[in-house]
Amino acid sequence: MNPVQDTIIGVEKITAGYKNTVVLQEVSFEIKRGEIFIILGESGSGKSTLLKLMIGLNKPLSGSILIEGQDIVSAEGDERLAILRKFGVMYQRGALFGSMTLLENVRLPLEEFTDLPPGAMDLIARMKLSLVGLKEFGGLLPAELSGGMQKRAAIARAMALDPRILFLDELSAGLDPVTSAELDHLVLSLAHNLGITFVIVTHELSSIYAIADRVIMLDKELKGILAIGSPRDLRDHSENKFVRRFFNRQGISDAPSEKFS
């Protein structure tokens, strides 16, 4: 794995919410370059909110999110575009464009943002597909693929412009354990071979142990961070009983009040 060095994403005092409810209250943390960072939390704890803030889809009530030093919250126009180019996103259900083949899906960012000759675009798109193990499937439409393959294709599309960061929303949701393990493997190999920083929302404990460098656990009542650290550290040394138990896969259904005991 790459040596963990400087900060690539800095979340600074983010407060976010909808209408009258605050979901995240003054949350700050950092993600280091090259690490696989996992966001955890029960539903309603603000995982998706946090992810949407980091990829610039939503705006926080206050605070800033620095991606390689540039604030995505306040950036507009070309500056914003430059930040968007630093990362790729895989959405929960892939969000591939249904009317385009896989190859066309992966080609699209290349067509829009580069002036490569068409043949080169095709080649690059096929290379990205081969990175995720879908070299032979470029001519198929997304609907003709299984859920796991759609997620792979979505990762290929997210990598089209060689971003430094990949955000993966719900990596293992709705997948069988075998496919899920294959995706874990893919993430590890991409992180290892290309040095991409991963920010992943997932709940699969086996997956977390297999790939995570660090985990952030969000909590609904705290409106913020319950724990942050490597999964093994949290399992063995967390001061919080609930966190230790979670990473031991015991008593996950314990009453929430235990989290604070």
Binding site: L81, Q92, R93, A95, F97, L108
Partner: peptide
Amino acid sequence: NEEIDALVTMG
């Protein structure tokens, strides 16, 4: 299907 979101984050 979040495809619009995907477009936005692609810039």
